[in-house]
Structures are given as C-alpha cells and as structure tokens.
Simulated assay, not measured.
Amino acid sequence: MKEVYINMNPNEIESEYLNGVYNEIANTLGIEAAITIYSTYRGQQITFPVNFFTTEFISSRIVAEYDGKNIRQLATKYGYSEKWIRKMIKEHKDKAG
C-alpha cells in the first residue's frame, strides 16, 4: 500500500505530523532522513548496540595507544574497565609472540 508522503513535497511535512519514533528521527536528523529510514525499515524492530565500534577496532586502538603506563587513561577514554584494557593488551602480546 502506498503511503501519502510519497507524493508529498518533504518541505510540506512537519515533524509533529509524524508518528512515534519517526517524529524523533525527523527532529534529530531531518524529514528526509526520517522518510529514508521509514522507507527502508518500516515495520521492523531495530536494536542499536550500546557500543558504536567493534571490539576488534577498540582493541587495536588500545594496543596502538598503550605506552606501558596509561591503562587508566585508556579505560576512561574508551569506556571500559582497566581489567578489560589489561586483558586486551595481554591477548595482543600473547598473539604477537
């Protein structure tokens, strides 16, 4: 079934006309983004992970930035515990040799 917005000019659509989360998306990202998200994902349940980056990426950054004594700073910077940072460094050292 076609939706009414398909034939509407996005400039004529106000965010308060939109239902639920589409209103929030339009207020945050704009009407065009809300339309794109609606068109792509309508009817689906979407869960956004708490962490933006993969564990592999964060581990590689930690190993690259580790200077032998900055575990606390890395933990604060990346939002992980010092114990987890130490574990990532140890795993890297174990793999390296």
Rank of each mutant, 00 (worst) to 15 (best):
M1V: 09
M1T: 10
M1C: 08
K2L: 07
V4H: 05
Y5I: 06
I6V: 11
N11C: 05
E12V: 12
E12F: 08
I13V: 08
S15L: 01
E16I: 05
E16P: 01
Y17E: 10
L18Q: 00
Y22S: 02
N23K: 15
A26L: 07
A26Y: 06
T28H: 06
L29W: 12
L29I: 12
L29N: 10
A34P: 02
I35S: 01
T36C: 08
Y38Q: 02
Y38V: 00
Y38D: 01
R42N: 12
G43M: 00
Q44T: 14
Q45Y: 08
Q45N: 12
Q45M: 13
P49A: 09
V50P: 03
N51C: 05
F52E: 14
F52Y: 11
F53M: 04
T54P: 00
S59E: 10
S60A: 11
R61D: 02
V63C: 07
V63H: 02
A64Q: 14
E65H: 09
E65Q: 06
Y66L: 09
K69G: 15
N70P: 06
I71H: 06
R72L: 11
R72K: 15
R72I: 10
L74F: 00
A75M: 07
A75K: 13
T76H: 11
T76F: 09
T76S: 14
Y78Q: 09
Y80Q: 05
Y80S: 07
Y80H: 14
Y80A: 07
S81N: 04
S81L: 06
S81F: 11
K83L: 07
K83A: 11
W84V: 06
I85M: 03
I85C: 07
R86Q: 15
R86N: 11
K87N: 09
K87T: 15
M88Q: 14
M88P: 01
I89K: 07
I89M: 08
I89F: 04
K93N: 14
D94P: 01
K95N: 13
G97A: 11
G97E: 13
